[in-house]
Design a protein around this nucleic acid. Structure first.
Lengths: 194, 194
DNA sequence: AACAGTCTGTACTAACTGGTACAAGAGTAC
DNA sequence: GTACTCTTGTACCAGTTAGTACAGACTGTT
């Protein structure tokens, strides 16, 4: 049932009513209110569920990326997730940011912590790469990770609005180029285009 | 009245009811339904209104940026807009993308066109800079502009969720660094940190 | 003053919202 | 079999939503 709920939320959040969810999974309202005290609590469970899926996709339980190839793969995970989803282009976490953070402080904090953890994973990898001299000493892993996450979220928004993955690809390419521009001994091909 | 409506929408979109808007500006429902046939039409008018404001802020009626300083200013406009707004951090256009593009195709197309025009303005500037040898010949202005716009949107989302402009600043700094990494004769200080 | 046409405020509807009440079912221990 | 608890389905409630009906007020013209 949680999966049914998450599916519903995945392609519409505030527009999804409890009745919709229950009709979809054939359950009664009593079941829902036995498991969750309120819609807010259900939403938080859905967010946690989506976050677990994202954590798994990005392998967040292991250490962050170690090489530039790892970084490239890490970033490309975003594309993989979108092409493998049958739903329209949409970030299951970022899409909630605007509609839920205004009304529910707990949800805002939850999403904030998720984004922080997500960025920290990349930042950890970059920090280790810096200590192994793959990344310039002047580079700031925290800020680079934030910037990368922003490119991901913004790229998905643009791709969602256009209904085409191209803007996301451009954003991710830009995100990688930015990181790689801080590689030590930058080779001329760092800023790849196309 | 349109301004009252846009104000309401600025800090909550689907959560804003017509009654809220009307109560805020002291008008009756008849007025609204004389001016707009439906809530959808009102939303489109609000989007157009917000877009005009954004166009003005980015000086979209003039040609795009001509120098790297112009590019820096262009990007910093995003920060200026957010700090001058009394509302919470939020892009008045991007915030609508997820909640409205699913239900209303006209709104999706409208936002898509807005993003395209926005990116084109920057791309035009970059193209002219390329022709004046400020930008490497291999650089792709369209994709760089898309990537920049994604950084803006994503940066605002993260800043909104955290309730702090820092992620937006990091994203914009990254966006500029990426563009500047494609400058001709790249100097070592291109990738500034801090 | 009389008219017609356009605006506008108020009251209303029908549909839907999250949430509750309650009784019937399912299982279990004795 | 019976009492008890936990789970479930159904009906319901109060509040809110977008949208409508309609009557009165304003406007300019004759």
């Amino acid at each position: 049932m949680e999966t049914a709920a998450s599916l519903m939320h995945s392609n519409g959040v505030r527009a999804t009513s409890l009745d919709d969810v229950l009709a979809r999974c054939g359950a009664g309202k009593s079941q829902l209110y036995h498991l969750f005290a309120s819609k807010d609590e259900l939403m938080q469970a859905v967010i946690a569920y989506q976050w677990q899926a994202t954590r798994a996709a990005f392998d967040l339980d292991s250490h962050g990326p170690d090489t530039w190839d790892d970084v490239q793969r890490w970033i490309n995970t975003v594309i993989d997730l979108q092409v493998s989803a049958d739903a329209p282009v949409r970030c299951p976490l970022g899409s909630l940011a605007y509609e839920l953070t205004g009304a529910n402080e707990a949800v805002r904090a939850q999403l904030d912590q998720i984004f922080a953890e997500w960025a920290a994973h990349l930042a950890d990898g970059l920090t280790r790469m810096k200590s192994r001299n793959l990344l310039q000493a002047a580079a700031d892993p925290q800020r680079l990770a934030l910037s990368t996450l922003a490119s991901i979220q913004g790229g998905i928004i643009l791709a969602h609005t256009r209904g085409d993955l191209e803007p996301l690809r451009a954003a991710l390419e830009g995100a990688f180029d930015l990181l790689h521009a801080h590689a030590t001994r930058p080779d001329p091909g760092a800023a790849t285009q196309g």
